[in-house]
């Protein structure tokens, strides 16, 4: 009973701190959006809606807070929390964030569109996350591919859109967390190795989700073509494998002083 209470406290603490950071990012984005909108109206360009802009930013954001979440480990162990409770608490917090952030983004998006439509006749641009511009540069292609995670328009299928958004940012969070704990546990060289592993995992996950959703896949990765019945379990397996690796790396880790 005591144990359960402790990891839920960790979840609560990490969830709110990170959500607070997310609000900070969203606030800045909203200010930029408003600025762009004012200019956009003047220039006659259709603005992006908040949801689709945050869709791209959220990947970077969750990746970074994932890296930072490794630094919560010494804080919690220093306060008498086990590594296991930290792991369970942080995992639940990451899932909580992955679920709540798309919903918040959607609500802000709908609200801003509603308000704007009252004051001016603005039409929002439909995002196109499927148009790849390959320049035969593999690294560039991978980066572009990583930025453009699988997107489903919430107007076509709301639950699926939010679910895919959540899955994307959860993967970015976990990839960041994996890198964070690898750098905490090992020296720089192995840490860099884990960056490579994380990028590979994110790319694979991206391809598999696109496979499942029948979204276009970049030529470089078209050789990975799994049927949905296999792709979905593999996606879940990858998430679990990353979590297992994070737990293994932190299970007995020495707390640095």
């Amino acid at each position: 009973m005591k144990n359960k209470a402790i990891y839920l406290k960790v979840t609560n603490d990490m969830f709110w701190v990170q959500l607070f950071w997310a609000f900070g990012v969203m606030g800045v984005m909203l200010i930029i959006q408003i600025g762009k909108l004012i200019l956009g109206i003047n220039q006659g360009n259709a603005p992006d809606n908040f949801y689709s802009t945050f869709f791209v930013v959220a990947n970077f954001f969750t990746f970074i807070i994932g890296i930072i979440s490794a630094s919560f480990l010494p804080y919690f162990v220093g306060n008498g929390v086990t590594r296991k409770d930290y792991f369970r608490g942080a995992t639940l917090a990451s899932i909580g964030l992955a679920v709540i952030l798309p919903i918040i983004a959607l609500v802000i998006s709908v609200l801003t569109q509603f308000i704007l439509k009252q004051v001016a006749s603005v039409t929002f641009k439909e995002p196109n996350f499927d148009a790849f511009s390959s320049d035969s540069n593999l690294i560039g292609d991978i980066i572009q591919f990583l930025i453009l995670t699988p997107y489903v328009n919430p107007e076509s299928n709301l639950m699926l859109a939010l679910g895919i958004f959540s899955l994307n940012i959860l993967m970015y969070y976990l990839a960041g967390w994996l890198i964070g704990v690898a750098f905490y546990r090992f020296h720089t060289v192995i840490g860099l190795g884990f960056i490579l592993i994380s990028v590979t995992i994110l790319t694979l996950e991206n391809v598999l989700i696109r496979n499942t959703l029948n979204l276009p896949i970049h030529d470089n990765f078209s050789f990975i073509d799994l049927p949905v019945t296999i792709a979905v379990p593999v996606i879940v397996l990858i998430v679990l494998l990353v979590l297992w690796t994070i737990r293994s790396l932190t299970k007995n880790v020495t707390i640095k002083m």
Binding site: K2, V81, T82
Partner: peptide
């Protein structure tokens, strides 16, 4: 004490 929640809670360093 290692990874023992009830003991770790009782030790402050």
């Amino acid at each position: 004490p290692f990874e023992n929640a009830s003991i770790m809670q009782q030790v402050a360093f």
